[in-house]
Design a protein around this nucleic acid. Structure first.
Length: 279
DNA sequence: ATCCTATCCTGGCTGC
DNA sequence: TGCAGCCAGGATAGGA
């Protein structure tokens, strides 16, 4: 599922196609992708605007818009489970799951494709409100080991649901939480305030390493889901330590990887490397 | 404060 | 082969 590395990859690959382009027209095939705005209001807000910048915050891809040299709001895209963004020549048939199409002034269009319709492609005047409640970006200096130690100690939650909580830390999802917890040899149900400082530092480092390595591999792809905007799969799934590897041997100790449910999420662990905490 | 459940969706899988 | 039922899962809302 698209998490920080996949979203970052998509933003990087579509950026050169979008920056400096004018939005000429808009076609919406599934209105609820717009998150409440009518198709008419959506079109009027963005048609004629220039795409000034493409960036990422948490799992959102953000397009800064300008009109006559002045800020003119933002397009925000959240891929959720099955969302994809592609840039193709205007008129390309993208199949039955096309939800939004943005026509640019160079004969190309940005397509938002989304099988399960959980994703969103919305217009917003100001991103401050939406991003105010989101935790720090794990690949910036804001996410320091000192901050992380204190943040874990100040909560009394299981590590897995805490790391999945976007208001605590931005960008992690089910895959990379399982990977980072395994790499740090911590059980997903471990209470955050009972993690020793050394283990917290280990987890801090592994979160960064796992995300950075996944970005280098252009994310993870499996089933028919995530693809880069060029239609290529990422390759980080080849390096998974635990995710989707239930029944296979742990890469560190050889014990069979187990799948369990933690916080209503499929969760993969090695019971030897990640022992259940006492109590 | 934290946890749990339902909701949104559909394709793909399992079991009969 | 056909089909019903279940599952995955990010984010959010509402209740315990």
């Amino acid at each position: 599922m698209p998490e920080l590395p996949e979203v970052e990859t998509v933003a990087r690959l579509i950026r050169p196609h979008l920056v400096g382009r004018l939005i000429e027209d808009v076609e919406v095939s599934w209105t609820r992708s717009l998150g409440g705005l009518t198709e008419r209001a959506f079109r009027e807000n963005i048609t004629g605007s220039l795409v000034k910048r493409v960036w990422r915050r948490a799992k959102w891809i953000v397009f800064d818009l300008e009109r006559l040299g002045r800020p003119a709001g933002h397009l925000l895209c959240h891929l959720r489970m099955t969302g994809r963004l592609h840039v193709e020549p205007t008129g390309t048939d993208m199949g039955p799951y096309e939800r939004v199409r943005i026509d640019l002034d160079n004969g190309e269009s940005l397509f938002f494709i989304d099988v399960r319709k959980f994703g969103r492609f919305i217009y917003e005047n100001d991103t401050n409100e939406r991003f105010a409640g989101i935790g720090p970006e794990p690949l910036t200096d804001e996410f320091s080991s000192a901050w992380f130690r204190a943040a874990l100690a100040s909560r009394k939650r299981q590590l897995k649901p805490l790391l999945l909580d976007q208001s605590f830390l931005a960008g992690l999802g089910n895959i990379y939480v399982d990977e980072a917890l395994h790499a740090a040899k911590l059980h997903p149900m471990r209470r955050s305030d009972r993690v020793p400082a050394a283990a917290a530092d280990r987890l801090h480092a592994e979160i960064r390493d796992v995300l950075a390595a996944a970005i280098r591999r252009e994310g993870s792809s499996f089933d028919t889901f995530y693809r880069t905007p060029e239609g290529q799969p990422g390759s980080y799934q080849e390096q998974f330590l635990v995710y989707g590897r239930d029944g296979k041997p742990c890469r560190f100790c050889g014990r069979t990887i187990k799948k369990m449910v933690v916080a209503q999420r499929g969760t993969h662990i090695c019971t030897r490397c990640q022992p259940v905490p006492r109590g």
